[in-house]
């Protein structure tokens, strides 16, 4: 009976303040959609960057007249770097094979002598694959006698790094604004509901109603706003994903992805509604009690 009472009071609150409630639900839907979409874009960028970084090879070319034994000495020296994950030694012969594979011609046939230098293919530990360290590493290694040139594809990484950073900063900024907007609107409906029922709250208090029975209808009001907002937002996001899938042949999302989209979006909506209203109700109800 208590539960029935709480549910009826909750529905009554939602219906009584239906205009602000609808505005709140729409705000939650839009804000959640933007939040989740932003999160997905950052996620994709981050993964792309991570892939690129962990597959990045630094090529260290030695002077062409350096011999194999001297090259081993240089490799020893490079081994002192504890930022290096792996070093692969590429001999003159291997270089010629790679040349053959890539260009379809034998270098020994074109020139009388193999001009390709000995080189190393270096992979750094993932944590050191950022442009600052790379340029420092390049400078240091190029100073080793016998090293001709250090080469890596830094332009793409730098661009992607800048983009990811920009998206992250903008994302956090937008996130704060969206959370603030949702908080403001949920609080507003709770405030309207609590004040509309301030007499009832005071009377129930005199009749010995506990804190939870008095507050639960308002807390649930916020949670239901979050739930409905979450359902709208999840539906919107799924439509957007289906549209992307049908527009770009290369893109496809797994069914797990769709399930996660449902679960996370709706859970996030409920949580935001619930936490905001729980905090707001405490404040507004206490105000009523302190006024008498």
């Amino acid at each position: 009976m208590k539960l029935l009472f709480v549910i009826r009071q909750t529905l009554n609150n939602l219906w009584r303040e239906r205009t602000p409630v609808v505005a709140t639900i729409l705000t939650i839907s839009i804000a959640l959609t933007i939040m989740i979409a932003l999160f997905e874009v950052s996620w994709v960028l981050y993964n792309e960057l991570h892939d690129l970084k962990s597959n990045m090879v630094i090529e260290v070319y030695l002077d062409s007249q350096i011999s194999g034994t001297r090259a081993r000495d240089i490799q020893e020296e490079l081994n002192n770097y504890n930022t290096i994950d792996r070093i692969r030694y590429v001999s003159k012969e291997t270089a010629a094979e790679i040349f053959l594979q890539e260009f379809g011609e034998n270098i020994n046939d074109i020139l009388d002598e193999n001009p390709l230098p000995i080189s190393f293919e270096i992979r750094l530990l993932p944590a050191f694959n950022h442009s600052d360290y790379l340029s420092l590493f390049k400078k240091q290694v190029e100073n080793i006698p016998g090293v001709d040139e250090v080469h890596y594809r830094h332009v793409l990484i730098e661009k992607l790094e800048t983009l990811t950073e920009a998206v992250a900063v903008a994302g956090i900024f937008v996130l704060i604004i969206l959370l603030f907007a949702m908080n403001l609107l949920v609080r507003n409906t709770i405030k309207l509901s609590v004040y509309a029922k301030r007499r009832q709250i005071a009377i129930m208090n005199i009749l010995g109603a506990g804190n939870l029975l008095i507050r639960l209808p308002f807390i649930l009001e916020g949670a239901i706003e979050g739930l409905i907002g979450g359902i709208f937002s999840a539906t919107g996001l799924i439509i957007i994903h289906k549209f992307i899938e049908s527009s770009f042949a290369l893109v496809s999302f797994s069914s797990t992805m769709y399930k996660m989209l449902w679960v996370y979006t709706i859970t996030l909506g409920i949580l935001i509604g619930l936490l905001t209203s729980a905090e707001a109700v405490g404040r507004f109800v206490n105000k009523i009690f302190s006024k008498k």
Partner: peptide, 14 residues
Amino acid sequence: AMPLIIEGYRRRYI
């Protein structure tokens, strides 16, 4: 019925 709801009595009893 309010005090009885607050007490948590069953619907039929109320």
